[in-house]
Design a binder for these strands. Structure first.
Length: 686
RNA sequence: GGCGAGGUAGCUCAGCUGGUUAGAGCGCAUGAUUCAUAAUCAUGAGGUCGGGAGUUCAAGUCUCCCUCUCGCUACCA
């Protein structure tokens, strides 16, 4: 593998419309932090940056809802996020934000350079415009009736009721969120990044040059490349964001996805200005290894879109690896900000004071590295009580307590080392090597387990040597044993530093030991024992490294979650009544009783069923999205209610003439609305 | 429906280019031990590797079909 002179590490920019939760931590920030701490301990030249992603429509919506300026929203969450990272020990060199001046200039410059090189294409399209508010409407600023489920509060990009992704032009009765008026279509011009032009080198680069990428990452990229890349708009009609730096671009800003990843570069530049180094060395030099830590939702951006931007600009290096993680679930359910189904970092830090490392440990040991994983409070408690307390904490404690008891805290002078002493110390070296390997492959879960094995070596050593027995018969030998146990303890103080920085620091404090770099780790090499703490060295009185977590603390957290669940159920189970309609409107609908004569599932679709209905008037074809809940055989012969005077519509090449009436519950389960006994086909429903 | 990832011991996961009786941690059982936050150490039980077919001397590991979970995508009058 190529030797690099320096590392540029980025962690996905959190979006500044909500706080950080355990999913973010497990997927992105903890692995990135471990990696960077490790590199630093090896004396590697590394910069680690992140920042708040502060543009985009959702922030302007939140601001509107609270009747404040977008800046107020981003200021609020920027502070919360930044503080919680600091308190949690995620140690960025720079945590910036995309509303900074440096970033505005950086994003504008990059846009300009790409534009000067004809890296964009311009296209006109039709978009909804609010004539009262005098502005174009982002998809989120348009509500209307979902053409699928009839929800009247569907947004222009998706319907939250049925989860469907929508196009604003599909909405029935579109309405501007800004003024309530009916928007009109107007032409607007935007700049697009023609990703399809980058397809070839992207494929060579990802599929050819980077076979070492994680399978989930490579697979996702290949899937996109195979589908064929499309031009992607880099600008939007919005008043919150970085203005498009061109003359004829009034009211247009850079699309948030375009400016956000540039935030990594801006943050580096700001750091460079503070510390006085050349930022371009970290972004434009082939000897730099660029690594993006992200979650799986960001794979396409960081592996395809952002590299295409950088390539189009021309002077930047591309990421060497993008170790994306999968998602973390919480107690069996997807983490969700809007449903408040999450463990929020800032709340955890209050509820579990000084227990940063317990969460770091749990989330690393159970990190979603290869597939989605589940966080449970029971697991959190078990890992603390059975692993941190029982294995690591206990070994350290018994060693230090014995040292106090036998030698008043002074590291004893060893005599002859026996084979078993040396063998145990050599295991430290073997583990160190394995840990290095695991970390280099971004397998932090495995690395952490190996670090715990080091503590296990210590426990086993003490159990086998039984110094508490020997002290009565061979006090001289015990000195050597305790000396060895203390060296193992000192190794733990270093090896855990990337994973559990708070604990490692406390341990070094107990041992009265200076910070050490990674290479200091060792047991036995070149025919001699590696002496991390010298004989005669005085150590401090120990305190327990970890406390047991009792059931009531866990119960409290579970109750918190149960509350969220209750609230959600209460809110979402029954839809509110819709606005009144006139009798005239109602009577326009011609609903009849009909009978299903034939039914067949449409090939190549998941939900669609082609039905032939006897309406009493005629036999007609209706395409209906019910295939997920019914088998053709079980519905043939059923009587149903059917709206027969609905505009016919072509679906998958078949003309659908009408709509079957269905009832749908909160989970989206469907059932037929039908007469309670066999009735005449064609009978009017009113 | 298409594509991607995953389905391995009660739980959480390793198993690289196919090769002797399928591994680890936690949990469980038994024993040892008491320096230690009843922590530790040893031993053991427990798996037809989602199901089926095939290739091969040999398959968890390759091919095909089916099935379930997660994600992206199409579709939903």
């Amino acid at each position: 593998m190529k030797e690099f002179k320096r590392y540029m590490i980025t962690a996905a920019l959190p979006y500044a419309n909500g706080p950080i939760h355990i999913g973010h931590l497990a997927g992105v920030y903890i692995p990135a932090d471990i990696y960077v701490r490790y590199l630093r301990m090896r004396g590697t030249d590394v910069k680690f940056v992140c920042g708040s992603d502060e543009h985009g429509v959702p922030i302007t919506i939140k601001a509107r809802n609270e009747n404040v300026l977008p800046q107020v929203i981003v200021d609020r969450y920027h502070e919360i996020i930044k503080k919680s990272f600091t308190d949690f020990g995620i140690h960025f060199d720079k945590y910036s934000r995309t509303t900074s001046k440096v970033h505005f200039k950086m994003a504008s410059d990059i846009f300009t350079t790409i534009n000067d090189k004809n890296g964009f294409v311009e296209k006109e399209s039709e978009q909804y415009y609010d004539e009262n508010a005098n502005q174009y409407l982002a998809d989120r600023y348009i509500t209307g009736t979902c053409p699928h489920c009839g929800n009247e509060k569907a947004y222009g990009d998706q319907c939250e009721k049925c989860g469907t992704t929508l196009n604003a032009l599909d909405l029935i009765n579109p309405q501007s969120v800004l003024s309530g008026s009916k928007p009109v279509l107007r032409k607007t011009k935007h700049w697009y990044l023609p990703l399809e032009k980058h397809e070839k080198w992207l494929r060579d680069w990802i599929v050819g040059d980077h076979k070492e990428w994680k399978v989930n990452v490579a697979g996702q990229c290949k899937s996109w490349l195979d589908m064929g890349l499309q031009p992607r708009a880099v600008s939007r009609d919005l008043d919150w964001g970085i203005p498009v730096p061109l003359k004829d671009a009034d009211g247009k800003v850079l699309y948030v996805w375009f400016d956000a990843p540039i935030g990594y570069i801006s943050a580096t530049k700001e750091l460079a200005q503070e510390q006085g180094f050349d930022w371009e060395l970290y972004w434009k030099n082939d000897d730099t290894r660029l690594i993006h830590f992200i979650g799986k939702d960001n794979i396409v951006f960081h592996c395809i879109v952002f590299p295409a931007m950088l390539k189009a600009e021309g002077s930047y290096i591309l990421p060497d690896n993008v170790p994306a993680n999968e998602f973390l679930n919480l107690e069996g359910d997807k983490i969700s900000t809007s449903r408040n189904w999450a463990v929020w970092l800032h709340e955890y830090l209050l509820d579990f004071k000084d227990k940063q490392d317990v969460l770091r440990y749990t989330l690393t040991a159970n990190a979603p590295e290869t597939k989605d994983n589940d966080f449970t409070w029971k697991d959190f408690q078990d890992r603390n009580n059975n692993e941190l307390v029982a294995i690591l904490g206990n070994f350290v404690n018994r060693t230090l307590v014995l040292t106090q008891k036998y030698y008043e805290g002074v590291v004893p002078i060893p005599l002859d080392f026996k084979d078993y002493d040396i063998q145990s110390l050599k295991e430290i070296d073997a583990l160190k090597k394995s840990i290095e390997e695991s970390i280099s492959l971004f397998r932090f879960r495995e690395a952490l387990k190996l670090a715990m094995d080091m503590a296990r070596v210590g426990n086993k050593y003490l159990a086998d040597m039984e110094p508490w027995k020997l002290i009565k018969t061979d006090a001289e030998r015990v000195k050597t044993i305790m000396y060895v146990a203390l060296q193992i303890t000192a190794n733990l103080a270093i090896v855990f530093n990337p994973f559990l920085p708070f604990t490692a620091a406390r341990l070094r404090n107990f041992l009265n030991m200076d910070d050490q770099n990674w290479d200091a780790i060792g047991g036995f090499a070149n025919g001699k024992v590696n002496e991390l703490i010298k004989a005669g060295h005085k150590i401090n009185e120990p305190v327990l490294l970890f406390d047991k977590i009792e059931d009531d603390a866990i119960e409290l957290q579970k109750q918190k979650l149960a509350e969220s669940k209750k609230m959600n159920a209460a809110v979402s189970s029954v839809q509110l009544q819709r606005e009144n309609v006139s009798y005239d409107d109602f009577s326009k609908m011609d609903i009849r009783v009909g009978k299903i004569l034939e039914a067949e599932k449409l090939a190549k679709t998941k939900k669609l069923m082609k039905l032939t209905i006897d309406t009493g008037i005629d036999k007609r074809t209706v395409v209906s999205g019910i295939a997920e809940y019914f088998e053709p055989a079980q519905i043939i012969g059923k009587q149903v209610c059917i709206l027969i005077n609905l505009e016919p519509r072509e679906i998958k090449g078949i003309t659908s003439q009408g709509m079957i009436l269905m009832a749908e519950n909160a989970e989206g389960v469907l059932t037929f609305v039908q007469p309670d006994k066999e009735f005449m086909n064609g009978a009017v429903v009113k």
